[in-house]
Design a binder for these strands. Sequence first.
DNA 1: TCCAGTTAATTAACATGTTCACTATCAGGA
DNA 2: TCCTGATAGTGAACATGTTAATTAACTGGA
Lengths: 156, 156
Amino acid sequence: MPKKPIRDGFHLSNTRRNLPMNLLRLRERIMNEFRPMLHAHDVTEQQWRVLRVLQEAEELDARDVAERACILAPSLSRILKTLNARGLIETARDSSDGRRTMIRLSTAGNAFIERLTPESAASYARLEKIIGAGRMAELIDALAETLDLLDEAEES
Amino acid sequence: MPKKPIRDGFHLSNTRRNLPMNLLRLRERIMNEFRPMLHAHDVTEQQWRVLRVLQEAEELDARDVAERACILAPSLSRILKTLNARGLIETARDSSDGRRTMIRLSTAGNAFIERLTPESAASYARLEKIIGAGRMAELIDALAETLDLLDEAEES
DNA sequence: TCCAGTTAATTAACATGTTCACTATCAGGA
DNA sequence: TCCTGATAGTGAACATGTTAATTAACTGGA
């Protein structure tokens, strides 16, 4: 039986020292840098994530898009409908598995991304200047490593 | 003029090395640990954040609650309405400033939090075991420091 | 005192988050 | 072949995110 004293077994950590809260707060501040740009081009954060994930992968099924963009399946259904109606993506049933929907950027979608990329890169550069390139890289590494730890723990 | 070569001025960083994306991904994994508990007690993430922020502060106006819980004013309006109807909080107009709404936990609200605290603490402890207490503390510090940097930059 | 400018909060409208339910499809065995 | 179970995707319902517009209340001067 562990004997080490716990200060207060039933006390919640202060929200200023709370990991999920700090992740949320930092992300909010950072997104404030990007939101005006996205809004000016009439895309939401989530739509932009979908487009970027597609740009990286050429073609993906909906499941992979959802996972990579951190979007739940029901939300993705609606987002894909919107992006499709807007002509930014193309969808097709997988011939080898009738359940899957394959998704890819359209020519217009690629052009759209390229139009926004300079602004996005500029915002990112501003952030990097404030945070510091070194610190920013360390933070990204720390986040990625922690993600890996959670993935490993999940498999057991 | 800086001469250092930029690999591609108009190239977006890979989403696996993207700070906002990693913040989002890690937060999602972590919240997966807490969501079942919140759902079992019929509170949303956001409602829980509001309750916890109130617990820390005794009494706050809506503006402070919104800022501390990372919730926008329109969302908070709806959430307060829900929590009030449920008897977990009490609201009153500020006597010295008719615009402000002062908010505090009700007795039932305090009891509710205390009922969930053991489960929440247990989830947090599980996470800490997976991530490592040291790494977790470092990560929280790094996030807090980065937040401070952004705050300072904003003031100028 | 009056008024223009600011702030706190709410409402509206649309997009997304979240869980549940449901359909269609696939995979593996009896 | 049939059946059970698992997977991909969608629809529904309610809560929240996001921006814009609105109302009420405060503030600081002319």
